[in-house]
């Protein structure tokens, strides 16, 4: 089971962070070539990420690179570097419409052919950062077979909506719309970053909300948030115990040729059995909540 609970942002120009971030063991590491890199360091960040991606320390972890938009002087150069370096996933920022992904995919395929990389092996994800992006979320989510997920980016979205980040009310519709689009498309959904790294309580409250909504995971800006997030996403011992009993009841019903599964006098149907299987898979992959 591939977990994508945590996607840790790393500034692409920071050699120290690029050299050590793997030790924090997020599910995915996202090297950022866009907003975290000043204009005068775009060239150096691109080369740092190009070489970091080829470093053996990143072989065992999913690598993502947020490139600059393709309509800037940097986007295509970023793409040339990271596809050739073997990145797992390219994250396109400011995705407003499916055509943005089509353009990206065309370029990715060209580069794959040029450098001898297997065509289709570079996966894509899109960050939705505007009102029009949210409205087009399903079209974006289904725009390419390479898509592994879509992410909501809160700051730019709030600017576009003429509001500001607050208690989450401002993201209510966008969170639900992006999540539904992702799930309908059969791909992952990633929530916004929580920028106050010292507010552990606020972070956990937001994590609880997005986990219960159904989000796959969250973009993170500080390694300190990884363990908190992973623990909050882990099933409890009670969840695991219940899931085991559901599976046992389902197996017993199948063995006895019963069409109806019952546990403690309550009927269990297929979605509950599927949910129990997912709980056990997640417990196996991540352990149980502490």
């Amino acid at each position: 089971m591939k977990l994508r609970r945590s996607m840790l942002f790393l500034p692409g120009a920071n050699a120290a962070m690029l050299s050590t971030a793997f030790v924090y063991k997020p599910d995915s590491i996202m090297f950022d070539l866009e907003d975290a890199v000043s204009l005068r360091e775009k060239d150096s960040a691109r080369l740092l990420v190009f070489h970091a991606l080829q470093n053996p320390v990143y072989r065992e972890i999913e690598t993502v690179v947020r490139i600059n938009p393709l309509n800037t002087p940097y986007g295509l150069k970023d793409l040339e570097a990271v596809v050739r370096a073997g990145v797992d996933v390219v994250r396109l920022p400011k995705t407003d419409k499916p055509e943005d992904v089509h353009e990206l995919e065309t370029q990715v395929e060209r580069i794959e052919r040029e450098c001898g990389r297997e065509v289709g092996s570079t996966r894509l994800m899109a960050a939705i950062e505007s009102a029009i992006g949210v409205v087009n979320a399903y079209a974006i989510a289904t725009s390419s077979k390479r898509m592994i997920g879509i992410a909501l980016a809160g700051f730019d979205y709030c600017v576009d909506m003429q509001t500001e980040r607050g208690d989450g009310t401002e993201l209510f519709y966008a969170r639900c719309a992006v999540l539904h689009a992702a799930r309908a498309a059969g791909i992952d959904a990633f929530d916004v970053v929580y920028s106050d790294v010292n507010d552990e309580e606020g972070f956990l409250k937001e994590v609880d909300l997005i986990r219960r909504l159904g989000y796959t995971g969250k973009s993170l800006i500080n390694p300190r948030q990884i363990e908190l997030l992973h623990n909050a996403y882990a099933p409890t011992d009670e969840d695991v115990d219940y899931a085991r009993r559901v599976i046992a009841a389902a197996e017993a019903a199948e063995r006895d040729g019963l069409g109806v599964i019952a546990l403690n006098g309550k009927m269990i149907d297929a979605p509950i059995v599927n949910q129990a299987q997912r709980t056990l898979q997640r417990a196996q992959a991540s352990g149980t909540r502490k």
Partner: peptide, 11 residues
């Protein structure tokens, strides 16, 4: 690390 050395020299 070697990867940073390569990148900085190239840049």
């Amino acid at each position: 690390l070697d990867c940073a050395i390569r990148a900085r020299v190239q840049t």
